[in-house]
Amino acid sequence: MDWGNLFVIAVGAILINNFVLMRFLGICPYIGVSKSLSSAIGMGMAVIFVMTIASLFSWIVYVYLLDPATNFWGVDLTFLRTISFILVIAGLVQFVEMVIQKLAPSLYQALGIYLPLITTNCAVLGVAVLNIDENYSLVESLVNGIAAGIGFTLALVLMAGIRERLDLADVPKALQGVPIAFIMAGLMAIAFLGFSGLSVG
């Protein structure tokens, strides 16, 4: 197994092409759930979890059911990609929610309210589509899924930390709330631009 390649994918997804700050995926939860640190961590964990299993299952569905070169029936069904991925993700989220509720009630208490929100989180569908666009193998897709989730959590937790302090700051009235959050996201994105000079591998 090519560990170096996996490392490049992971660093790329966490820092260089951070899902939130560089690719603009998952902006709604990034602005909406970043008001307190504890909810940001809960949301982040839920997203890492869902992104990992969504990467796994969407890859299996695409390669074994849709792609004419590798699927069982040799018919080109790639036009069904968007529909099948969103259904796989929606079904998975529902299933995961039921399993967690049954097996780990305390985890369900922590993550429960965030799970339904994740179905329409574009970052999850985004990572599934990106895995296919980049022609990743199964292991590479998994690593990309986990790393994208970690990158999302990193951006979300950093933002929540700043916003908790911002409550004490004297912000002009028109900028209070969402506008200042966007401007801070812009400043964080400038900081993350620094990573694009990073050469790995």
Binding site: L21, M22, F24, P172, K173, A174, L175, Q176, V178, P179, I180, A181, F182, I183, A185, G186, L187, A189, I190, F192, L193
Partner: peptide, 18 residues
Amino acid sequence: LAPGAFITMGLILAMFNW
């Protein structure tokens, strides 16, 4: 680049609030 999008969005929202 990405930062420009965030900052423009923030300022336009602030303008509407104002």
